[in-house]
Design a protein around this nucleic acid. Structure first.
Lengths: 244, 244
DNA sequence: CGACTTTTTGACCTAATTCAACTAATGTGG
DNA sequence: CCACATTAGTTGAATTAGGTCAAAAAGTCG
């Protein structure tokens, strides 16, 4: 089975078998990282580019008074920091949310890729565009929607992204997030996240337990959440469920 | 005097005189666009890349129930849509906030640039990284800060960006935003924006009238706002005031 | 088992919203 | 240049979504 990374890129642009093999080879020496570890910290000058093969990680930043904002969840197949190759200093941190398998690529591997594998460059560039679009969608989500709608919108997005890399089973997938992390993502207090989750659960829309989320009726949840997946720019947004 | 665009790129990477001349030449045929006009609309397949030479524009998107979220302000020197060159469809809209001078570049001009002017490519790539970082900062701003702090943080950012393109005079610069637009930027109601502005005004931190903002003491405002400009990645973040 | 973290719930508080009215600008046609 | 229409800004009162504090219940893990 191809790994999540290959599945993801393949979702943007049909990959040549050659490129698939190359991707498989670079992702063969993954490193295990425990939960709650920083892969990169604000202020660092990153040497390597990180790629998540399994597990969940996040992009985040702290404010002066100790509050945390999570900017993105990084799921299998996601590049963490390709886009900061140019920057002298990280302007945010990246940390794991659970034990992860991470590939660390020296920057020259990326340079090599840009020179020799144009179709991959295109696919990887798309990744960064989608990251930007996702960030905009989060801003809209936090800026304009009520707590339960925000949370359910996030769940719709994660479902779509997890499905795209083959990590869903029916409407269910692994989601190792605490309510505190959800709060720091949505700009909500833990207590209010808890109450909103209860509301969603009572409405039969989603249930979240044992680090796993279950969505009985994804269409109903999407409608409830005003979710339109086009910002994810997947080629097959409504593909049949490829559970693995 | 070089235009805002040249100033901005020069702030990321010292430009070759050759590249400066080329930039001047492409930005010589600007088009006048009135206020409240869409340059690009969600769903469009953009043909041209837009560059703001003067005036203010915004990136935004509407929700199903008619609410608007503004994602970014585009000020002189900003590319609107370079990053979506790859996308089939715009996932958000771009509209003017006041009369603007806009350069429309056929996509091949950008292709040409990427092939012949590597130092410009680097500078332009930096622009898109900074756009991303700015978006993250807005997310943190909306997610974690109270209304008056949010608003003042935005003002600090705009001051820094306007200063970088030589459009400030002391602590004052043109800011043609209505309170309604500010609200749709910050996820706040018009009424609350109004009250927050009054609070800032009464505290002597900022005053906004006649489409112009005045900041008597920028250091005080920055401290109040927990503003750290490093996410803007300017080479000379505390440069002397280059008013024009 | 005991220590610790996460989830859940209740009571109370406050930041922000909504509704509504009124004032101050800005603009337009005669 | 004024009368009128329209948009933008301001303020008050009532309401509500969400936050804070606190403590109990339920998981997790050495």
């Amino acid at each position: 089975m191809p790994n999540a990374f290959i599945r993801k890129l393949d979702g943007f642009e049909r990959l040549h078998p050659d490129d698939r093999d190359w991707l498989l080879s670079i992702s063969s020496h993954a490193k295990d990282v425990g939960a709650d570890q920083d892969l990169l910290r604000e202020g660092d000058n990153p040497e390597n580019v990180h790629l998540i093969l399994s597990g969940f990680a996040m992009r985040y930043k702290m404010t002066a008074n100790g509050r945390r904002q999570i900017f993105a969840y990084l799921i299998p197949g996601d590049f963490c920091d390709l886009h900061v190759a140019l920057l002298d200093k990280m302007d945010h941190s990246i940390g794991t949310l659970c034990p992860c398998q991470v590939v660390q690529l020296p920057r020259r591997v990326i340079v090599e890729m840009t020179e020799r594998r144009p179709s991959l460059v295109r696919a990887v560039w798309m990744c960064s565009l989608v990251d930007g679009a996702t960030l905009r969608e989060w801003l809209l989500n936090i800026g304009q929607r009520s707590a339960p709608h925000r949370i359910s919108h996030l769940f719709c997005e994660l479902h779509e992204r997890m499905k795209a890399v083959g990590l869903t089973e029916d409407g269910s997938f692994e989601l190792p997030l605490t309510q505190s992390e959800l709060g720091d993502t949505m700009g909500l207090s833990i207590v209010h996240v808890n109450r909103s989750l209860k509301e969603l659960r009572d409405a039969g829309l989603v249930s979240l337990r044992n680090e796993r989320i279950a969505i009985p009726d994804i269409h109903r949840l999407r409608e409830y959440s005003d979710f339109d997946s086009s910002y994810l720019h997947l080629r097959w947004p409504v593909a049949a469920n490829n559970s693995g």
